[in-house]
Write a protein that binds this DNA or RNA. Sequence first.
DNA 1: CACGAAAGTTTGATCGTTCAAATTACAAGT
DNA 2: ACTTGTAATTTGAACGATCAAACTTTCGTG
Lengths: 379, 379
Amino acid sequence: MTQLPTVDDVARVANVSRQTVSNVLNSPGIVKPTTRGRVEAAIAELGYRPHASARRLRTRQSSTIGVRLDPVTNGISGSVLDRYLHALTEQAAERGMRIMLFTANDLVDEIDQYRTLRDGADVDAFVVTATRHADPRIDWLTAERVPFVSFGRPWGADMDAANHLWVDVDGFAGHYEATRHLIGRGHTRIGYIGWPAGSGTGDERRRGWAVAMNEAFGLDEAELELLTTRTEEGVPEARRLIETMFAAEHDLEALVCVSDSVALGAMMAVNEAGRRSFPVIGFDNTPVAQAVGLSSVEQRLDQVAAATLELLMGATGRRVLPPGEKRPGDEEGAADMRHRLVTPKLVVRRSSHLAPVEETESADAGIAPAGRHHREEMQ
Amino acid sequence: MTQLPTVDDVARVANVSRQTVSNVLNSPGIVKPTTRGRVEAAIAELGYRPHASARRLRTRQSSTIGVRLDPVTNGISGSVLDRYLHALTEQAAERGMRIMLFTANDLVDEIDQYRTLRDGADVDAFVVTATRHADPRIDWLTAERVPFVSFGRPWGADMDAANHLWVDVDGFAGHYEATRHLIGRGHTRIGYIGWPAGSGTGDERRRGWAVAMNEAFGLDEAELELLTTRTEEGVPEARRLIETMFAAEHDLEALVCVSDSVALGAMMAVNEAGRRSFPVIGFDNTPVAQAVGLSSVEQRLDQVAAATLELLMGATGRRVLPPGEKRPGDEEGAADMRHRLVTPKLVVRRSSHLAPVEETESADAGIAPAGRHHREEMQ
DNA sequence: CACGAAAGTTTGATCGTTCAAATTACAAGT
DNA sequence: ACTTGTAATTTGAACGATCAAACTTTCGTG
């Protein structure tokens, strides 16, 4: 192996100039078909591949998106970021982009990383996850005009800030659908287990349940509050809670839970209490939910990933758009396309009890990851 | 914001030459301390950061490691790769390296990706996961002399191939310890639920159980086989299996399971059968195991990540070593340092039954991810 | 004090690509 | 044939860093 071929080598073989080769690669439209054919043949013959770093140096673009891995593994719902990452990597590749990972210990450190990656021309844009209220990272990125999208709404006044692009899953719609499903099956006393009030995500999910309950049975907020309990995330916590809940509310018929962890705890407690046919619905459709047959609301992370890239690069673009730019692909007056809410989908399983071994879930076959096969395991 | 500062700008301010600035950055040792101080001051003053792509172009190194995300989400054990990725990203950063992700649809496609990434000088090395028997990727990487490490042994004749670096978790040791633990608690009839024979990983784990049982009770392979059942991965599968198993083997006292999925299935079946105090131990220590209080064998993925980087870059190096090179840090005749087996660790929980709400696991506080807090969830 | 070696610093060239401007080829219109 | 305009192609320069070699300073030694 002597040396990797360069544009010059290709040019020599195809009997054209450097730049023409470059054009064939980057704007094939402006090269005469005959010539293009010759160049493409030469490329194939030599097995030429562009040197990514040289291109980046010249164009000042890295074709890379930076994603920070959260510092803590995320319990039972950890696979959410995992699946998002996967979808993002896959779809980014289709647009010629790559995903680069990094970690940070705290928000200050994270901003420092942003700066290094940006200045080093390592990445063109960032995806920010786990956004907080009044997030300093958002402020920095906005002020520096670094392109970014957050997965998660900025819960606060700045929710509609023109230059903050975000994608999120519509938790409201998810639990609205879940609750409608239960109502449709004839249940009326449907409880809710949520996180402590104040978490935007949690509140929004509960609102889905609340609105559905109100529409169906005209319950007011006070009555709804009686059907609600709140707990920190975690299976054992939820379990204890449900036990006390059962003691108090004897006529409960079903539960909608803010997460699969909580739902799993609930399910175990329900089972323990010997109550059969007691539906429990979670959120996230984690592998555990699938494993134990828990109904859950599936975040469609491929759609979230697609939306992320659309916001960053336009509908079909192959490069990151400068922030605050009018985005091509935004047809006419199409509302402001600065954020996307992805509607999740209820996956129904027989989650009423742990007991019966359930039939294989043929109904789920179409749903993205739920229908996929388990693989043996990384080996 | 006019323009990002370059080495030349720093040089001008510090009143030295380009190259001296470069030296301060890359080999501070050869620069006179006085000068170095001046340069560092200038760097700080201007907020200079090296342009990664320019450096890469010149040095032909990317300081980036490519990792392929598996095409299928991995059920309940999906978090294993996730946690490995995290540890790898973190530790790579400490050595000035980055992690880049990519996906591929099949092995051929994956090799094509390798080629593009390598030729484009996008990555210096690869981490290969989910290795198969007689893996074409390994052959290609070896033939092309591309540095790589596989997470997972090459189960086959080439296990000791000199130029194939690999890291793996010692499944044997894991289930040996698990079984010893059960024996120590007085159990004698300990069953094993494994994967179908032939999967290297699965066979190795079972061997840990088998050896422990043989040492303690002198059982021969025929007798061990009677205590073994095999199933495909998956909770419902395992559950059905255990039910039939109970019918046949009435004196079973405990179970060691090849994975957490299988263990969860077993646990549910056990619970269903109304058997209390029936210990079940899994493998992977997934979040689910923690959530439902299942004992499991924890892969120490931070150690796996550390070993990965050591093989790739030497004990403390900051760049990827050419494959087949004698690796600095290999003290004297220290056996061949071309692979590492990381010993996993048993995490004991009250996994005998689903019933009692367990006390918080203070005992686990020291164990890496098991002791960490759940976070609310990505929002 | 002069000499040579080592330490410290600078200079010119280069990595492989794309940009911007210049050049040539080709077609249509008078 | 001759301009004129557009399409197609080529040329020189630049992106920001490091390498290799040349140069200058410092220091130890006979």
